[in-house]
């Protein structure tokens, strides 16, 4: 039977971008408030899953042509590299630091290495979640 999901598809096209924006907001809010790489990553994965529900897996593959296993590995690597950085500087493993910088447009901004670690977590979560969901959903 051919189902008609024109409403779902139309809504999804708009809502996916809202969710993605919100996930970026959550990712950056995580530094001082509830949020962070983990939740942001889950939210991004949720957006992609919504796409998968509204359209199908082939569409997802075409729209987001990345290998999510690689995304997971890249995320883990980034998180690990921030840890390895502390080995090079001879401070305890996973130590993090921050500083205030005067950036153009943004003005005085606090930049922290913990955000890099969080970026790794974000990518790893997106990668793992999508790998799991795609491998469950692939089979018919």
């Amino acid at each position: 039977m051919k189902t008609n999901d024109v409403i779902l598809q139309t809504v999804a096209k708009v809502v996916v971008f809202l969710i993605l924006t919100f996930s970026v907001f959550l990712f950056f809010a995580g530094h001082n408030n509830p949020g962070g790489g983990f939740i942001g990553g889950l939210m991004t994965a949720a957006a992609l899953v919504l796409l998968a529900l509204a359209f199908d897996l082939q569409t997802i593959r075409k729209v987001v042509p990345v290998d999510f296993r690689k995304v997971m590995a890249i995320g883990l690597m980034i998180a690990l590299l921030t840890g390895i950085g502390s080995l090079v500087l001879d401070v305890p493993f996973l130590s993090h630091t921050f500083g205030h910088f005067d950036l153009p447009l943004l003005g005085d901004t606090e930049l922290a290495t913990a955000t890099l670690f969080d970026l790794g977590v974000y990518l790893a979560v997106v990668g793992v979640t999508m790998t799991i969901i795609l491998s469950i959903g692939e089979d018919h």
Binding site: F38, I132, S135
Partner: peptide
Amino acid sequence: LTSIVISFGVTSFFFVLAY
């Protein structure tokens, strides 16, 4: 949170395996 993440991973693995 840690435990939820772990059990999420394990449960999904278990599901795939059961299938």
